[in-house]
Nucleic acid binder design. Sequence first.
DNA 1: ATGCTGACGTCGC
DNA 2: CGCGACGCCAGCA
Length: 113
Amino acid sequence: MERDFFAAVYDVVRLVPHGRVTSYGAIAKFLGSGRSARAVGYAMNASHGVTPAVPAHRVVNRNGVLSGKHHFGSENAMADRLRAEGISVVDDTVHHFRDVFWDPECLLQQPSP
DNA sequence: ATGCTGACGTCGC
DNA sequence: CGCGACGCCAGCA
């Protein structure tokens, strides 16, 4: 287990498949504490400049809203990136969120080949 | 050193 | 069904 909560968050976010998104709560729950969703958001705030790069744009709140789009330099940077991956984003909200949503727990279900 | 704030979510009333 | 409070972690004044 990563002793650094932030490091664990980055690791999970980097595992998010291309064209998929996840939520703060899902990551928090995966890490063990379902109530540490907040901490996950703080981790993303510090994810700037972290290597390897962390696809923070694939992380949205449980409503599928790009709550952190203000931290991407440009207001449309986050939405634009998601669209580039084939994700429909309208009004700062991910459409078909349920469909493109990726749960880290999926790793536990998917047996490593 | 202490307190507040900030990319959220769940539980309680 | 709507609103409030708590929990979580780190950075900064």
